[in-house]
């Protein structure tokens, strides 16, 4: 059950890291450094968005190392769909005010 513990660690510490970044950024923004503060908040949001994908990447690595290529391929497919979504997001108009 090695993979479950790896994933648990990644998600637990990743959540902490992203939350702390957002908290620090908001405090900075409140105490006068608005622009750098909001940049740190954006970084924290970016970390949250990347966290599930890094979890899938970690699963992909573990599956391949265990020579479980079928599940490795499935993990790669999920990553590809997410990546495709990002590309679509860059090229399609926003529904609301950007």
């Amino acid at each position: 059950m090695k993979m479950e513990w790896l994933l648990a660690g990644l998600l637990r510490y990743g959540t902490w890291l992203a939350s702390i970044a957002i908290a620090i950024g908001l405090v900075l923004a409140f105490t006068g450094s608005l622009t750098p503060g909001m940049q740190v908040v954006t970084l924290g949001i970016g970390l949250f968005i990347l966290l599930p994908s890094s979890r899938v990447l970690l699963m992909l690595i573990v599956f391949v190392r265990e020579r479980d290529y079928r599940f490795g391929l499935i993990a790669a497919l999920v990553l590809a769909i997410i990546a495709f979504g990002v590309v679509v997001g860059m090229h399609t108009p926003s529904g609301g005010p950007a």
């Binding site: 949001i45 997410i82 990002v86 679509v88 997001g89 399609t92 926003s94 529904g95």
Partner: peptide, 12 residues
Amino acid sequence: AASAGAYFMRGN
């Protein structure tokens, strides 16, 4: 995350 990545790029 699949939609958040796209919405992030879109500026939503």
